[in-house]
């Protein structure tokens, strides 16, 4: 098991390294110079260029880029959006709202998905199941920003219950949450539908399995058999879909944050790309990649803990 964890972490670091290299290259290929303001003092510009080795060849720049990140987590400074500030500091300061909406969406959608999936599976091929299945298809296929706009129109304009944009003046947690409701709902629809769909399929398969029949013939009630055997066994494959869900929510929050003017990482990425604030873009890209990789790692490892077939057999791995 220990070896397995190490190999997973090794693979993760390798992937992260590749992503860092790629984002370094891609950003270098983008148009726009870091210094477009004609009023910038040429002297200052030269000094900055020297400091960040921008006049060196690309391989040398790459070397310094990697060295700075690895030795002291230095991603450079922002030149356009928050001129002069440390990029890593900006990243950290933008973290709370992003974490808030992403995690709340995740924690809402998991139980909801489990509930709806169970209802659909238990009422298989009845109208309840059909209604849920149709909604699932809609919520999976329509991207979250469409729901964002729909919610914004209906619940802030036509029926003003929620504020249109994030209230950055909010002081109490309740006030903050009030203005975060819509983005969270918009983000939760897709993952809820995903879980519903998976759980429905898994449950139906497990309910018609031989071991469920055995559970019933040994004298458990139908409810006991389903909860103790079918439901539990259905959760294992579901845990694997969490990876896709978390990255999906984060991808959705890129746009949603911008739509609702939430001061989070997503808005920052979009803004920095348009402004040509390259150091910042690279840092946010790496942040997103790192979060995805850590999620994959956690799910991979937890898979081994939940499923005895992986865990017990793991001695050989």
């Amino acid at each position: 098991m220990f070896k397995y964890i190490l190999s997973r972490i090794g693979a993760m670091l390798l992937t992260l390294f590749l992503i860092m290299s790629l984002s370094f290259m891609v950003v270098r290929l983008m148009p726009m110079s870091l210094f477009e303001n004609p009023e910038t003092d040429p002297e200052i510009q030269r000094k900055l260029e020297d400091k960040y080795h921008l006049n060196d060849t690309i391989p040398v720049q790459y070397f310094y880029f990697m060295k700075d990140i690895i030795t002291d987590l230095n991603f450079g400074i922002s030149v356009k959006i928050r001129p002069g500030l440390d990029v890593f500091g900006i990243l950290v300061s933008r973290l709370p709202p992003t974490i808030l909406i992403n995690f709340i969406s995740l924690f809402i959608s998991i139980p909801l998905g489990l509930i709806f999936g169970t209802i659909a599976a238990l009422n298989r091929n009845t109208w309840i199941d059909h209604v849920i299945s149709v909604l699932v298809i809609i919520f999976i296929s329509v991207p979250s920003f469409i729901f964002g706009s729909v919610l914004q129109y209906t619940l802030t304009f036509a029926l003003p219950i929620f504020p249109t944009l994030y209230d950055s003046q909010a002081v109490t947690f309740a006030q903050k949450m009030h203005s975060l409701c819509l983005p969270i709902v918009a983000l939760s629809l897709n993952p809820t539908a995903t879980i519903t769909r998976y759980l429905r399929g898994e449950l139906i398969e497990n309910i018609s399995s031989e071991y469920l029949l055995l559970a019933r013939t040994k004298g458990l009630t139908k409810a006991q058999a389903i909860v103790r055997h079918a439901f539990r066994n259905s959760l294992i494959p579901i845990s694997n879909t969490l990876i896709g869900m978390i990255t999906g929510i984060m991808g959705g929050s890129l746009v949603i944050e911008k739509m609702f003017a939430i001061p989070g990482e997503g808005g920052l990425l979009v803004k920095s790309i348009f402004a040509g604030d390259h150091f910042l873009t690279v840092a946010v890209l790496i942040f997103y990649s790192a979060v995805s990789l850590v999620t994959i790692l956690i799910v991979d490892l937890s898979y081994g803990i939940i499923d005895p077939r992986v865990r017990v057999g793991g001695g050989k791995a």
Partner: peptide, 17 residues
């Protein structure tokens, strides 16, 4: 009334002790 199944390979819950 107890029942013994035809296929013991699929009759046991694979993830329960």
């Amino acid at each position: 009334i107890g029942l013994i199944f035809q296929d013991p390979l699929s009759a046991l819950n694979p993830i329960m002790k």
